[in-house]
Each structure stands twice: as C-alpha cells, then as structure tokens.
Nucleic acid binder design. Structure first.
Length: 610
RNA sequence: GCGGGUGUAGCUCAGUUGGUUAGAGCGCUGGCCUGUCACGCCAGAGGCCGCGGGUUCGAGUCCCGUCACUCGCGCCA
C-alpha cells in the first residue's frame, strides 16, 4: 500500500465499500461524541468523513489533535446508514472507519481559521497566505487562474502564435511608469530595469521575422496600488503580429477574449464578438471615462450651452462656462420616489470622495405646462430652457439630472465617477453580465499641463492615423499648430470590460522617419531617440515589417471571471498596498557587504521624531 | 504626497447620553456525551479597547496628534 494514500479525499463512493484504503490530508473539522469521533479529512480534492471508536488505541491521539494537522489514516470504507448519509458531500454516502493513524504534522493554534469563508483582516491573511490559500474560495480562484491561462495559451497557439520568453533584467524605458532598478555588480554605477512590459522585445521579434508572438508576460511597474492594480508586478497576455491592421488585431484577440470569458462565464452573459467600438472622444463625452462600465445604462452629455442662455440666472455654473469650463449632465433615471436625502448624499459623495465643489441636480416631472424642473437650482431656469435641456440629455418625467461643472478635465472626471456612483446607488449594475467594448481613436498627443508642452498621450510607439493615400508622416508634417497636433489620432485602442481596462494596444510605428518626427513633435531630438530606443530604432533601419499588438491583463481577466472585488484575490502570493510581502518580509534590509559589492551607499530620509 | 473608512479577546463583532468589575459567537483549555456533518451540554482561561497626549471627578465612548490596514486621488508608455 502507498505510504500516504490509495485515494484522494473526493474519490470514495459506494462501490468502494468493504475496501481497505489509505487517505492523507488536513483535519478540517472534528466532531467529538466522546464515544465516537468524526473527522472530516480534507485535501485539494475534497472531504471525506472518517470515524474512530474509543476502543481504537489511537483514539486519544486524534481526540487531542488540533484542526489543520496533517494525518494519514488507514481503514475500511463502510456504507453509512440511510439517515446518516450526507447529500451535500460527494463522498457523503460512505465513511472511513479508522484503524491506523500516522500524524504527519501537528498544527498549532491558527491565527485565522480555515473552516468557513468570512472576511479576515488582509494583513493577517497575507502574512499567513498558505492558510488563506487552503480556504475554498481563494483556492478555487487560483485554480481558475491556471485554467484561464491554459485556455488563453491554447487559443493563441491555435491561431498560429508562437510563445517566447524575453529578458527580466533589461534596460530602463524613458517613457511611462517608474522603473524597478537592479544594480549591476559587474558594471559599477549602472542599473538594469525590470521590464514594464516586453514592448520593445516583442517589436524586435517582429523585426526578427517571427510573424506572430505571444507571452504570458510578467510586467513590473513601481506604482501605487489600486483594487484592480497590484503593486509592483502583474501579468499580461502580451501579443504582437506582423503585417496587421487594427482590424486584423481585433479579429485575432476578440475570439480569444470572448472565448475565454464564455468558457468560464458559468452562465453569465458575455458580449459576443465583434465588440462595440467607441471612439475615445465619444466615450469621454458619454461616459466621462475611457473605460466605461456599459452595464450602467446611463449616457451623459454636455449641457454647457444651456447655462449661458438668456434668462438663466444660475451664476455659479454660468461663470464656469464663460470662463472656458464645461457642464456635463448625468441622468439619474426613475428617481421620482427617491427622497431628497438621495440627492444630498450624492452631493456629499462628490465633495468627500471626489473633492469636488458639489453636484447640482434638477428633478423632472410632468406638470400642467409639460415637463417641469424641481430642486434647489431649477428655479434659475426658464421653463423652455429646462425642457430643451431635458430633451438634449435624454431625460423625462420621473428622471433627474446631476451636473458636474468645472474645467473640462475635472468635469469629465467627476462625470465619470458620478455616473458609476448613480449606477451603484440605483442598483443598475447586473453582476451576471460581461459587457465588452473597444475604445478606439485615441489621440496621439496630449497637452502636458505640468511641463506646458505637447507629449505622447498613450505610448510613443504608435502609428498616427492617416487617410487613404497619405502616410503617417504626411499627417504629422501637416499639423503645424498645437491644435492640429492634438487632433491627430493614433491607431491605439483599449479593451474594456465592466469598467475595467483589460488592455491597451496599438498598430506600431515601424518607420524611423515617422518615429523621429513624432518624437520631435513631443520635444525629443533625434539623438534622444537614438540613445533611449537604440535597439529598436536601429533595428527599424534594416527592414521592419508593419506590425501591431495588444496586451490584455491576465490578473484583471481572472478577477472578473472569479467575481473578485480585489486583484489580490486572484494572485497566489500578493503584496499589500505598500508593496510589502508580509509573508516573506520583502523588501528587506541587506548586509552592508552586499551593498559594497554593488557599489551602493544608503542615503535614507531622516526618521520622523515621535 | 492628499482625502474617506476601519481599528475592542487568537478570529468575527456588540458596547446606549461619558458613569459599577468591557460582553457575545467561533477558537482555545478541562470535563461530559455512540451517529454527527456549523454536533450538543457544563466549566474555565484569555483585553495596553492600535499608540501618544488632552478635556473631565470619571474616557472604549469626546477632542488633538500619530501608526496600521483598506478604498479613492495623484501616479499608472
């Protein structure tokens, strides 16, 4: 007989009755009747009830043993009496009568229970992650993650993509997020950077003629955490293909995404491919965001013009509009029966959470003279303006409008957040739906307010959009004012699902002349491009195929499929919000010898006085 | 760096208007129990009420500061 087990804990059935078997696992739960002791034995596969009688010489050992100890039991499988069967357990028809016990590992009292699934403090869960991972929900999430990656890999290979591994120790990339740096012992004063993404490598693989690349790629960015953003590291389905237009890339990735989501949706509805395409500008206007949650059936609009009409006396917003600002309207449908406190709470939310001046609102109801406005600011509007504004915003009897006003960027941000908040408050979000869309036509450049200059808006590797018969270079050269430059669109796109940005991608700029021109427009001279992107720009001078790609975030995909509210729920060993691994104690101080070898000396901030 | 929330037993939580010795469930320790499957019953141990300061005759409760966790903003090609 095998030293540890003949079966797993989810295997024994009626047909095994009479057999002598051996099981190993954790003591999940004990029920001690004094004259009879039940033990639920648990392993990765499931639970089996074992029973021992006091006559057995091992009875007392088991009676004293704490839950989560690991034991090996040997005994006979017996049929349970009819009224003692447990229909909730796959192995519930039988039980194992213990004759022999081997205690493999005694457990001390646990810092957090494994049995049950309530919420525990995250720091304890993270410190004792291996205990948390024994719990069913987290355990299943991690298994799901493996299955999703396997499915993605199969789907990519079926479409002719080849999998590659690219370097982890590489060069810093000047654009984008903060790098993680690794000092070089052999090259004093020089540092590797961990890749923020294998961006340049995958493009170089296209130049190398591999045609179709993919990788489940680790990416490293030294940025602060969010609920859907793990600090430090995450994984992408990184892909790139040669001779591909934007539509070709969509046609490859849509069936992968739709396919994976359908495979693991478990009854939830998935947007069928092709996904709706929403231009960036339209998305910002209608949803106040470039990652709209389309489960919320609310469309916002610009109502600035109504606030400066004759007869409108609402000075606060008037001033904003006349000063170049914007007013956006967020409909709150069917709020006729909502108490005033609902509107006050929304206003409080905007002030507290968004640090906004507030959210004005008007409620609309049918009266004697048609649609009438109610609420604190309605009286500042002539009736016909209100009616036209309601029509413009798409609201009617029983609906309300919230207003987000301010500088356009601020108003848009508040609009997006308010739209989501209204959706939440009005219970408009269906948790059993995955709503996908593409956001397309991102601007190539944006105005960098901090440095008062034009900069790349997304990434510097994208091809500017050009009409038939013109090249990207023609388009760049034709833009001779800041306004025209900011109007240039790129072949850049994001996939969004339920308000979460799953990925962004682009058709790349593979031509050195267009590359130099684009960087020049963002204020970088040719020499900068030649040093910062040395490998890639040189490579493009020796024959580069047109190419493009995308990189959906694995962690976020699994998070959505697992129904998790937090990305740490789908990562085996995550760090906390301050980028610390509480289980492994990372980051940690190092011996001064290690620092000397690396030619490093610490210059730490002064500790705060208590 | 900034803003919101939370912090009471190993864990989940209650704790009234500031007023006696801070409670419950789970877990833990001991005892009882032969059909449980969240087993049950009895008893017990376990508290720097995150930390520091203040107000007060008196603070878990009010005020100020601070720390930790978390959500968001900044940041995230």
């Amino acid at each position: 007989m095998h030293a540890f087990r003949t079966h797993n804990c989810n295997e024994l059935r009626d047909k095994h009755v009479g057999e002598t078997v051996r099981l190993s696992g954790w003591v999940h739960r004990k029920r001690d009747h004094g004259g009879l002791l039940f033990v639920d034995l648990r392993d990765h596969f499931g639970l089996t009830q074992c029973v021992i009688e006091p006559e057995n010489e091992h009875f007392e050992i088991l009676e004293r043993l704490r839950v989560e100890s690991v034991i090996t039991v040997t005994g006979k499988v017996v049929d349970r009496l009819a009224d003692a069967k447990n229909k909730n357990l796959p192995t519930g028809d039988i039980e194992l009568v213990i004759s022999e016990i081997d205690v493999q590992s005694r457990a001390e009292e646990l810092p957090l229970p494994v049995f049950g699934e309530p919420d525990y403090p995250e720091d304890i869960r993270l410190k004792y992650r291996y205990l948390d991972l024994r719990r069913q929900k987290l355990h299943n999430n991690i298994i799901l993650r493996g299955q999703v990656i396997n499915s993605i890999r199969t789907r990519m290979i079926e479409q002719g993509f080849n999998e590659f591994q690219t370097p982890i120790l590489t060069a810093s990339s000047p654009e984008g997020a903060r790098d993680f740096l690794v000092p070089s012992r052999l090259n004093p004063g020089k540092f590797y950077a961990l890749p923020q993404a294998p961006q340049q490598f995958k493009q170089l693989l296209m130049v190398s003629g591999f045609d179709k690349y993919f990788q489940i790629a680790p990416c490293f960015r030294d940025e602060d955490a969010r609920a859907d953003r793990s600090p430090g590291e995450f994984y992408q389905l990184d892909m790139e293909m040669s001779y591909a237009t934007q539509e070709d890339i969509f046609a490859v990735i849509e069936p992968v995404m739709a396919g994976v989501f359908e495979e693991f949706a478990d009854g939830r509805e998935v947007t069928p491919a092709p996904f709706p395409r929403i231009p960036y500008k339209e998305s910002m206007l209608k949803y106040g965001s470039d990652k709209p949650d389309l489960r919320i059936n609310i469309t916002c609009s610009d109502v600035s013009k109504f606030f400066i009409e004759d007869g409108v006396e609402f000075k606060a917003f008037q001033g904003i509009v006349k000063g170049g600002g914007t007013v956006r309207a967020i409909p709150a449908p069917n709020t006729k029966d909502k108490p005033r406190s609902f509107f006050d709470k929304m206003n409080g939310w905007a002030q507290r959470e968004m640090q906004a001046p507030g959210l004005g609102y008007i409620r609309f109801e049918n009266g004697e003279n048609g649609l009438e406005g109610k609420g604190p600011i309605a009286k500042f509007f002539p009736a016909d303006v209100l009616q036209r504004m309601a029509a413009h915003a798409g609201v009617g009897d029983g609906d309300a409008l919230f207003f987000a006003a301010g500088k356009e960027t601020d108003a848009v941000k508040l609009t997006g957040a308010a739209r989501t908040e209204v959706g939440r408050q009005l219970d408009m979000i269906d948790e059993n739906v995955f709503k996908f869309c593409w956001i397309v036509d991102f601007p190539m450049f944006e105005w960098d307010e901090d440095n008062k200059k034009i900069d790349f808006s997304h990434n510097p590797f994208s091809m500017p959009q050009s009409p038939e018969g013109m090249s990207g270079l023609d388009v760049l050269q034709a833009a001779d004012t800041d306004e025209k430059i900011l109007d240039i669109l790129a072949y850049q796109y994001d996939i969004v699902c339920n308000g979460i940005e799953l990925s962004s991608g682009a058709v790349r700029n593979h031509r050195p002349d267009i590359m130099y021109k684009a960087f020049e427009m963002a204020g970088y001279d040719q020499a900068t491009v030649d040093t910062e992107f040395a490998g890639m720009i040189t490579a493009f001078k020796y024959g580069a195929p047109p190419h493009g790609g995308i990189a959906p975030g694995i962690d976020r995909i699994v998070m959505l499929l697992a129904g998790a509210q937090n990305i740490r729920e789908v990562i085996v060993f995550p760090m906390n919000g301050r980028a610390q691994d509480l289980m492994m104690n990372a980051p940690a101080e190092v011996p001064s010898k290690s620092l000397r070898e690396l030619h490093l000396r610490l210059d730490l901030p002064k500790e705060k006085m208590p």
